[in-house]
Amino acid sequence: MNYILETENLCKVYGKKKALDNVSIHVGEGDVYGLIGKNGAGKTTLMKIVGGLSNATSGTYTFMGRKAGEIGDVITNRGLLIEDPGVLENETGYENLVIKEISLGIKDKNEAMHLLEMVGLKDAARTHVKKYSFGMRQRLGLALAFVGNPGFVILDEPINGFDPQGINSVRELIKEKRRNGTTFLISSHILGELSKIATKYGFINEGKLLEESTEQELIEKCKSRIELVAEDTPKAVTILEAIGFRDYKVMENGMINIYEQVERTGDITNALAKEGIATIEIVRRYEELEDYYMKLVGENEANNQAAMLSNENSGIVNAGDRRTESK
């Protein structure tokens, strides 16, 4: 796999606070990599480092096959929008783009207008940014990230401040750019925001990368299913076959997991009853991506507390409990 960006045990320490703790992410060429984490998880910190705005305390990263610090000319191949957009208030939207174009040595005179059109700011091109609304600034920040048509674009919570229609247009923009070969690293604290566009996810919590999985793997993990426990498992299976279920799996403990037509729980119990087989238990499990993520974070935090508890010997055992309560 060709990674456009690969980080190796990145750590960032602010004073005593470990904002990033050995984070290694892998962003493949053409990916839309969704970085998911609560506020304060370390998303911005990570993006600042790989965007060249901040130095890692330890660890390194490789961008387009080159180590940090030896990136050279491909440096102009990344665009970023980190936190709130940095825009010059006393300049027009157009001028904001032109200044970045000059900085990158871009000669194309039409690019600025084209970018403004792309983000829906064409009519406000000659308006001073101080008269822009919050959403318009966000759009301008987005346009700035795309100056010079970079192959790799970092967007830190880009959907913040958009109305539903705006969110949709941002999604469309990302999809279109991706079709043209742009790779994205996008962060969000809401998984659902990215679930329609991301191809790979990195879950981050308290500075640690909890898990990295492709969209496919995630769907696999969150697949909805029926869990069935019946009196006579082999018989139950034949009945299931008879009423048209093919995608199921018999677990070691005799539970049957059914991965298709999850709405037909009623049919199943009826069919089993007709054949005189008692249904001991039948539940429909459906895991939302969001739940999955919450579970991941929960496990991580539980582990942390367990670790803390085992570290803190007898005297202050209660500290851990109190922490649990305050959560």
């Binding site: 060249g52 440096i75 990344r78 936190e83």
Partner: peptide, 11 residues
């Protein structure tokens, strides 16, 4: 205003 963020990643 943070405009520097737009440039600093490209030097």
């Amino acid at each position: 205003n943070g405009y520097i963020k737009n440039i600093a990643g490209n030097v």
